[in-house]
Amino acid sequence: MTATAAGPMVRAERVCKDFGALKVLRGVTLEVQKGQVLVMVGPSGSGKSTFLRCINHLEDISAGRLYVDGELVGYRESRGKLHELPPREAAKQRREVGMVFQHFNLFPHRTALENVAEAPIHVKKTKRDRAVARAEELLDQVGLSDKAGAYPAQLSGGQQQRVAIARALAMDPKLMLFDEPTSALDPELVGEVLGVMKKLAGEGMTMLVVTHEMGFAREVADQLVFMDNGVIVESGSPRDVLTNPQHERTKAFLSKLL
């Protein structure tokens, strides 16, 4: 893993995001400490995924400040004003942050192994044989060493998502973002993906997870955040939020899930 500065891994200060007149994020403030797992829950349209996409600057932000490992994401600040970074520097920042998508988004024209080794070889300029050896190691870690030569279309959803996790890990990120990683999976395949994520959390990876899997949240999360309508309604330890929610909206949401 990359060397990191002191302080939290993610710090968001009143982050706002508008799409035209629509306000999707209306001042989100939170911190994720290094090595911790933060799970975000909330109804669809509440802004969880948008917030996650702001953290690696797939979306720009409309106001506020967002820091990863002490560094402002996607912007340069001078005299109190934000200036968007040139694409090259934004791309450089993204290399340190892994992302896993709801629909996997594997490269369909590359084998599992090629998917994992792609970014290290072409973005990081790692030597091919070293990148391939590392990719094989990562596929082994997610339990897919026998599927290295298979194309995504030949894999089940759960296998594809595990390849996607290996692909993100191949860049040696200091932070992993998971955007509803199990929502597109058949119920019997959810466990294998959550298992890999649990293992990753156990190894000390800093993770930000948007999910509806309350069991995972209870077991793995250090911090649970309930978001609704672009703001954080409630946050705390998963035990407190899940068993003793303070806000009506949290109660209403949880009662529908459980």
Partner: peptide, 20 residues
């Protein structure tokens, strides 16, 4: 999603075009 996955891996626009 293919553009997004490539961008998230730190690829430039041109590399995304060329490789993905």
């Amino acid at each position: 999603g293919q553009f997004e996955a490539s961008t998230a891996l730190g690829m430039s626009w041109w590399m995304t075009m060329r490789r993905t």
